[in-house]
Design a protein around this nucleic acid. Sequence first.
DNA 1: TAAAATTAAATTGTACGCAAATTAATTTTG
DNA 2: CAAAATTAATTTGCGTACAATTTAATTTTA
Lengths: 163, 163
Amino acid sequence: MTTKAAKSEDALPDEALALGQQLCFAVYSATHAFNRAYKPLLDRFGLTYPQYLVLLALWQQDGMTVKRIGEELGLDSGTLSPLLKRLEAAGYVGRMRDPADERQVIVSLTENGRRLKIEAFKILAEIGRATGCSLAEVGELRDALHRLTERLADSQAEGTQTD
Amino acid sequence: MTTKAAKSEDALPDEALALGQQLCFAVYSATHAFNRAYKPLLDRFGLTYPQYLVLLALWQQDGMTVKRIGEELGLDSGTLSPLLKRLEAAGYVGRMRDPADERQVIVSLTENGRRLKIEAFKILAEIGRATGCSLAEVGELRDALHRLTERLADSQAEGTQTD
DNA sequence: TAAAATTAAATTGTACGCAAATTAATTTTG
DNA sequence: CAAAATTAATTTGCGTACAATTTAATTTTA
């Protein structure tokens, strides 16, 4: 009588809570695995992984504002402000107030920052090798994750509605 | 002559570096999306997501050592020690030195910690809804991520070899 | 068995990541 | 056009993460 779960309402078995069953934990673990894989490759340049993401964004489009970079990466200025200062101190980017709107700060690659792009292709290849995935597999998994991220964000937006 | 990329060696196009193309960034973004989705659900209990992961682990197997929990979650004692102190302060776990080996600290659920497990099923259901994935989809994506994580970890191990 | 090596946690220092408060500049609007 | 509202960055405070160091306990081994 006491052995079978409480309310039959959900009927979720105990194993449903196991870490290995959780998609969120699989994502969380993969993030850490990527971080560890990138670390030795980025250490040579004194970069952290989030800093590298900012450079990836700037290599595609130089001269973005802090806000724009935040939109690209899903980070807020509270995270980016100190990070960008470190990137500046490392000599990879410069920051200057937009003369047309002094509230905004424009972040631009330095010569060193631009030069680093060549190295990024090597890092990319190295990581690609480490994943052991075909381009097709990478593409599928990436797209599935993007859809997942989108749905999670959407459901957040719903919960925020003023009804 | 100057327009076409440098060494034909890799022949990776510029777009290969785009954030949207990166599997690592898709994983990174999904992690943040999960964190944001969990936050309002966990705030009610004064829990962070990593703290919740520790509870998930303890609900499966109570009374683990710090090291064992670290192996389950892929975290080291530098992260877990302060985290577990907060879980203790919140009244969800107790910590005590193993009398048989005073180096080890055994972490056990309190009555409140055990009670919370019921709520976890609701959180699980809520997140499941937010992902908008079928059980089959979740399973596939999760397994693909586990394989990816494994391969990344393996390639790390290789790089550490003393050859 | 005493010294050396190993092990488990905790601690320290650096860097995200985010919420909330602050500051400064620009828009809105009354 | 001046006050109010909004916006962009910065700052502050808290909680991960992780490397490196420290402390204490246990094993190894000499």
